[in-house]
């Protein structure tokens, strides 16, 4: 059982939860997730909920997750108080592949909304590995841009984003560049500003990132979501269609163990609702 250390609203319906779990904190890699059972041995909602690890601190034995209240499960989660305990299974899944160490140049991170969560830990590990990255963060409006303050070295908040490589894009232009985060990515790739792209966000955004990656011949990794039951690879519930390989036979991949991070070329992003 993991103690909840903090569970605070950081935007409209968006929460940041800090958990004490030494095992997850020690072994989680960027892009992996934890499968959380709702409080009180709940049978309704029945299933666990998967959350990307946003940051893990092995020294403190803690981890952060970000979530948005979208249904009954997350409503219940939002009512959890510090000092309560949650059953946490993890870390699970295949995380991001770090760029080859001998490569030259920066990489790009593209976040849409809460999709920023796994990219925060990735950006930390990339900095530690000495890989430069451009972090493009998109959202509908300023109040929905959450978690940006967690990006290492991004300064105290949105008002002060001294990091030249952090770019904020909002659809309504309430802060940063107005438009879609993929417009910013297109510009970046046109300038040859990234040798590899990591993306997490709504599937429409991921499709566009995948398309841009192909157009600019830059490899893309995407972190996907799908309704999930066991989280371990046994139930085959969280299937996504694989890109047809040779022979063209239809096959499915499991988001929980084959992902949640995939190379864009592995999955049929057009086939995801």
């Amino acid at each position: 059982m993991a103690e909840v250390l903090e569970n605070c609203e950081i935007g409209p319906g968006c929460f940041r939860m800090r958990l004490a779990d030494a095992n997850v904190a020690r072994s989680a890699r960027p892009g992996q997730f934890v499968h959380v059972r709702l409080p009180g041995s709940s049978l309704d909602p029945l299933l666990r909920r998967p959350f990307s690890v946003c940051l893990a601190d092995p020294g403190e034995g803690t981890l952060l997750v970000l979530y948005q209240v979208v249904g009954r499960g997350t409503q219940m989660l939002a009512k959890i108080r510090p000092g309560d305990y949650l059953n946490v299974l993890g870390p699970l899944g295949r995380g991001f592949d770090m760029p080859p160490a001998d490569g030259k140049g920066d990489v790009a991170l593209v976040a849409g909304g809460l999709g920023i969560a796994p990219l925060i830990m990735l950006s930390r590990d990339l900095s530690r590995a000495g890989v430069g990255c451009s972090f493009l963060v998109g959202g509908r409006s300023q109040d929905l841009l959450v978690g940006v303050d967690l990006v290492p070295c991004a300064g105290a908040g949105l008002a002060a984003t001294p990091r030249r490589d952090l770019q904020v894009v909002t659809e309504d232009g309430s802060i940063g560049r107005q438009g879609l985060v993929t417009d910013a990515l297109d510009d970046l790739l046109r300038d040859g500003g990234a040798r590899c792209v990591y993306a997490c966000g709504p599937v429409g955004m991921l499709r566009e990132v995948g398309r841009l990656g192909e157009a600019h011949r830059v490899p893309v990794q995407v972190s996907l979501e799908e309704r999930m039951a066991c989280g371990l690879g046994a139930c085959l519930g969280c299937a996504v269609k694989a890109r047809p390989g040779r022979g063209g036979r239809e096959t499915y991949l499991r988001v929980c163990v084959d992902g949640p991070v995939f190379w864009a070329g592995e999955v049929d992003l057009d086939g995801i609702a």
Binding site: L43, D44, P45, L46, L47, E226, R227, M228, A229, C235, L236, G237, C238, A239, V240, K241, R249, E250, T251, Y252, G271, I272, A273
Partner: peptide
């Protein structure tokens, strides 16, 4: 067998609907 296209799962009160399709 490849199984059924997603979605394959849908949670209901205290229950789970599945349509995995014998993958």
């Amino acid at each position: 067998r490849a199984g059924n296209p997603p979605p394959r799962l849908w949670e209901t009160p205290c229950g789970l609907l599945n349509s995995v399709g014998l993958q």
